[in-house]
Design a protein around this nucleic acid. Structure first.
Lengths: 251, 251
DNA sequence: CTTTCTCTTTATGTATACAGGCTGAGCAAT
DNA sequence: ATTGCTCAGCCTGTATACATAAAGAGAAAG
């Protein structure tokens, strides 16, 4: 009955429980608002109560669960507005990172790393109008965002961005797959990539304010993708953690 | 040997441990970088290992501790730059909150609450040039910031700001006491209060961009206060968690 | 038929026992 | 004197037992 009875022994029980539980929540196996019973999870995950409890605490920190006043945890539900704001928060913090990078200045080698990453993205995008390997794009996109955060050279900021990106639908490349069925796919990726180029140029030229503004706007592409998914029922499957989003009734 | 053997029974052991441990860390009773042994804390706090462990995990989330790769936790040390960035993060997020509040619009009653709070601050500041009750100011200041966050009406943002303010020296009114010995005290409080007034006006008039800029600048008063404490050794005592800050050697 | 009270069940909070791994001291060998 | 090895002590990760509080079912009364 356990999800991954034969999972890697090298991982600690706590980490195993955390991964498995997150998977259950995101998959929608647990309904939003529903209490997550420790004993039931012991049964389902095949670990004892202690690691389950640790996993619950950590997932609460991630924002996937919320504490019940009388004790224990429940699966968190998100309104559409909350999702939008979460994306805005990430964009704002990434904007701050870009500005700090521009103001402090960044080493030549790091700039080259970033530029190389963007070249690779170009190659993926331009390959063939309709045959773009999205998983490859997602990975490279995540890498570029990581480099950008490294450029700020501020552990507290990196940490905060990590927290903001912990919500499945708020991370930098979570909503990219939503575009996969769209005829505008190539268009949007082109625009996004141009923003990547521009922010890198701005950082290189020490134009902090511009770098910040670009990253903020860049995050709003995710807003558009989310909007699409919310209006096109069938695209919701492509949104990670979509089961947690309370849908409004739409006309 | 325990810090608070006879503390309130109504609080759970976990919360008790968390409060006591935080106190120990901030007081500087545990040296930065030092490992925090669970058993030693059991002895010092008078609770068993389970709540101590929970408290350790939570304090790591707060950012006061960091996980040791081989297991366990250590007291975290902060560089001056990290402290500055932490303040900048808080300011940026509060700026976002102010902008959202302005853009969404805020109910009349909430605006009145805020205005009343500011009136009270005025009364504290203007009371007598040299006899200002700082603790009262700190409390009212915190209240105004709380109202501002409520205006944004975004639980995820409130949560993130709370996290950013969890670092003792990063919260909105943590560094106010540093000014207490300064002849500029009245001057700085006047400026800060003017920013309060301006941001409220901006929100009322739906001037989102302005509201955001003001809150960002407002947070930078904390920068100034920190700078003062870093140059005036004797003022460091007034900085909460100063024991965690790695001082550079200064000429 | 509804409502309320009680009792049972089950939840979490806490303490503690046990196992495996890391660290460091002391000793031996070069 | 230095370096490498072994062993002991301690520390964390995990499992589980126990106590207390909450939630739900069922029966009785209105």
């Amino acid at each position: 009955m356990s999800i991954e009875k034969s999972s890697d022994r090298s991982l600690s029980q706590t980490v195993k429980a955390q991964l498995a539980l997150r998977e259950l929540v995101l998959r929608g196996a647990l309904n939003p608002g529903e209490r997550v019973s420790e004993l039931q999870m012991v049964e389902r995950l095949g670990v004892s109560r202690t690691p389950v409890r640790m996993a619950l605490v950590r997932l609460e920190e991630e924002g996937l669960l919320e504490a019940i006043p009388s004790g224990g945890f429940a699966v968190k539900a998100f309104s559409e507005k909350e999702v939008f704001v979460s994306i805005e928060i990430r964009g704002t913090l990434e904007g701050l990172a870009a500005r700090l990078a521009a103001e402090h200045g960044v080493s030549r080698s790091t700039l080259l790393d970033a530029a190389e990453c963007l070249d690779e993205i170009d190659r993926v995008i331009r390959r063939d109008m309709r045959e773009i390997d999205l998983s490859q794009y997602v990975e490279l996109n995540a890498r570029f965002h990581r480099i950008l955060i490294d450029m700020a050279d501020s552990p507290p900021l990196a940490r905060q961005i990590e927290r903001a990106s912990a919500l499945p639908f708020a991370s930098a490349s979570a909503l990219v797959p939503v575009q996969s069925r769209s005829p505008e796919l190539h268009h949007i990726l082109t625009v996004a990539q141009d923003q990547h180029r521009c922010v890198l140029t701005a950082i290189e030229r020490r134009e902090g304010s511009r770098a910040e503004a670009i990253m903020r706007e860049h995050a709003r592409i995710a807003h558009r993708n989310l909007e699409r998914a919310l209006t096109n029922q069938r695209d919701m499957d492509l949104v990670p953690g979509s089961a947690l989003i309370k849908r409004r009734i739409r006309a």
